[in-house]
Design a protein around this nucleic acid. Structure first.
Length: 675
DNA sequence: TCCCCTCGAGTTCA
DNA sequence: CTCGAGGGGA
């Protein structure tokens, strides 16, 4: 045998044993024997360095720590799934599927039910059978490149078995087996390190580690469940999910073995019911069952809503519950002045974390559930992370003189004592004092937030200090801070002070939309701020716009428009705006009405198409309009900028004429879009 | 006028 | 993530 052949044979044997150990959890040889094989391979590779490839099992652990993770866009977004919480919702899903596929009520759709692993989603790319990249789910559109860490996970093959497409994206879930989780926490406890709350947190924390060596010791594993069509070609997808899982296993990827092909929804329901209890014996945590239409062709027919595919649903096992005592009910004051009651709980461990607080949303909610300070309550954590108080356990409530009094909303703000207001028809009580210290703090945090002015380092703790020290009374005061004054604060050295000043400096040039969002105008969120900035160009134009002009902006209706107007009409706003201007913030540039160099000249307009155009299809016409930033809708309303009228126009033309909406003929339309 | 969808706002723990 | 409200289409 040549050295190359020897090395290849060894790698093959090692991979085989890795699979036995990490995928089938049924090793054929002892750890010592396995280590011996590895040492043999290392020795050979040392002698023949040219034969070392990145797919060699010896290359799993990279010696060099990575320098943070690069952000990578997914070829196809990782959608999340709609949830079902009970049998009824599962049956409703089945009905939607049958309707979507045009099947009778008694038809039985073939589904595949897979346990939903509680870990973190990962997208693996294989080129010519070799693992070249691992990316986290991130926000679904882009994730972090964690290839170095993924390569250390023994369940994941560095090289696929058999014949695989030249380029292949595999999706799956990285998780930490319960056994590894227990071991890690024991170690951490011994070393006086904080323990992980649950396996998922431990897995997520591990994947974020920049030290691949550490990752390799943690014992992460993975299950694969999806193949993304190479180059997005649906025809090349495997025909069924069952076939996909078989193919994944054949390529040497770990596949969770307890999946079942179910004919008809009854079998799915039974599967979910069976695993709600049986899951406790598994080596990993699962919080539900993923149900997919098995036939891939049917999936294309069903399509997706804007948020979820219509051919799959995630059934969540019933929420885990616990009982504890409400020690008292606190009140929090938010940025908009909303006063929120919060239950302070005797800490209780529930489904992976210790719960000490739970929001009670508003007074109505507290009254409806009749939760009183001192009550024992049932709390639960469903599929989501945020715990909620289900109900008080009334039978445990003392009677007579001992009975706790029902919760009453105070008449004045717990922070500034100004009277609380609640408009008729609304649920939320608000502190209307714009200079309420609590509101000021929350407002400053919002202003500095990542989606607003993105001032790193200016978080809750620092805001608190700045306000307490009287250094900051409004947004503009932030820009008067200098390193000298900051350095006097607690836990604030020269370095952090200088950093903050630099961050403030950087924030001056941010887009106008961030400033508008940061101002915290009621009913104006991230999107609304973008729409306003885009439509008016400058802060002065927004501030000077009439309610009618504001309403002409897409997605701005009477409520939002009135709120914007009220904000700029408030006595304190004028001075604030001037001080922000003096601080050199980016107030935007006027919109150039006839600018068409690369920008979107039709931004903020809405067109309706009717009739048949001679020179292009309706889709093409729509694409032209959208390319220029216009929106195209299906029916004429007062928001319609103009109706494009082709031959044989229908009722939309009549409607446009009766409402005085301008019309464009084909020639005028082509001039507008420049074709 | 009603319904659907999107957006805003509030929020827990590590 | 969820609830509720606002916007806009039917």
């Amino acid at each position: 045998m040549t050295p190359a052949e020897q090395i290849a044979a060894l790698r093959e044997r090692i991979r085989h044993h890795e699979e036995r150990y990490y995928i089938h959890t049924d090793p054929e040889i002892s750890d010592a024997e396995f280590d011996a094989l590895m040492r043999e391979l290392v020795a050979l590779e040392v002698q023949h360095p040219l034969l070392v490839t990145p797919e060699s099992p010896t290359q799993r652990v990279s010696g060099r720590p990575a320098e943070g993770f690069a952000t990578i866009a997914h070829a196809e977004p990782l959608l999340s799934l709609d949830n079902a919480y009970d049998e009824g919702e599962l049956r409703a899903f089945d009905e939607r599927v049958r309707k979507g596929l045009g099947l009778d009520a008694d038809a039985r759709v073939t589904y595949i039910a897979e346990l939903k692993i509680d870990g973190l989603s990962i997208a693996l790319t294989y080129e010519d059978g070799r693992l070249v990249r691992g990316v986290t789910r991130g926000d679904g559109v882009q994730g972090e490149d964690v290839t170095v860490n993924v390569r250390t996970i023994r369940a994941i093959p560095l090289r696929l078995r058999g014949v695989a497409p030249a380029r292949l994206e595999i999706r799956g879930e990285v998780y930490l087996p319960n056994r590894s989780f227990a071991r890690i926490n024991e170690e951490r406890e011994r070393n006086d390190e904080p323990v992980f709350a649950n396996p998922r947190n431990a897995a997520a924390g591990t994947m974020r580690t920049l030290d691949a060596r550490l990752v390799s010791t943690r014992g992460l594993s993975m299950f694969a469940y999806q193949v993304v069509a190479p180059d997005g070609d649906p025809a090349s997808l495997l025909a069924t999910q069952t076939a996909t899982l078989t193919a994944l296993a054949a390529w040497g990827l770990p596949v969770e073995p307890h999946h079942a092909t179910c004919v008809g929804i009854d079998e799915v329901v039974a599967f979910c019911a069976a695993w709600a209890d049986a899951r406790r014996d598994l080596e990993f945590e699962t919080d539900g069952v993923v149900i997919k239409v098995d036939d891939v062709g049917s999936r294309a027919v069903l399509g997706a809503t804007s948020k979820f595919p219509r051919w799959a649903i995630a059934y969540k096992f019933p929420a885990q519950q616990a009982t504890t005592r409400v020690t008292r009910i606190d009140l929090q004051v938010g940025r908009t002045g909303a006063v929120t009651p919060v239950a302070v709980l005797e800490p209780v461990f529930l489904a992976g974390s210790t719960i000490a607080m739970a929001t009670l949303h508003n007074q109505q909610e507290v009254a409806r559930k009749d939760i009183r300070p001192g009550d024992m309550v049932l709390i639960e954590k469903g599929g989501d992370v945020i715990p909620k108080v289900v109900k008080p356990i009334v039978s445990l409530r003392p009677e007579g003189a001992e009975a706790p009094a029902p919760f009453v909303m105070p008449a004045s703000c717990p922070v500034c004592q100004s009277p609380l207001q609640r408009p008729d028809e609304e649920v939320v009580w608000r502190c209307e004092n714009p200079s309420c210290p609590a509101r000021l703090r929350r407002s400053l945090e919002h202003f500095a937030g990542r989606k607003a002015m993105d001032i790193e380092g200016l978080g809750e703790a620092l805001v608190d200090q700045l306000v307490s020290a009287g250094l900051v009374r409004d947004f503009a005061d932030l820009y008067a801070l200098d390193a000298e004054r900051l350095a006097g604060l607690e836990r604030m050295g020269q370095k952090s002070a200088a950093n903050l000043v630099a961050e403030l400096e950087r924030s001056r040039t941010h887009d106008l939309s961030r400033l508008v969002f940061g101002l915290g105008i009621r009913h104006v969120g991230e999107r609304g701020a973008q729409a306003l900035a885009r439509a008016f160009g400058t802060l002065d134009a927004i501030a000077g716009a009439s309610v009618e002009q504001l309403q002409s902006v897409d997605d701005v209706g009477p409520v939002v428009a009135a709120s914007v107007r009220a904000f700029f009409d408030a006595p304190a706003t004028g001075e604030l705006v001037e001080r922000l201007r003096a601080a050199g913030l980016n107030f935007g540039a006027p919109v150039d009405p006839d600018a068409d160099h690369g920008v979107k000249p039709l931004a903020g307009t809405t067109y309706v198409l009717t009739g048949t155009l001679a020179s292009m299809t309706r889709d093409e016409a729509q694409a032209h309009l959208e390319r220029l930033g216009a929106r195209v809708t299906g029916s004429v309303s007062k928001k319609t900028t103009a109706v494009v009228v082709g031959a044989d126009a229908g009722s939309k033309l009549a409607k446009a004429e009766s409402r005085g909406v301008p019309t464009l003929d084909e020639q005028a339309f082509r001039a507008l879009v420049g074709v």
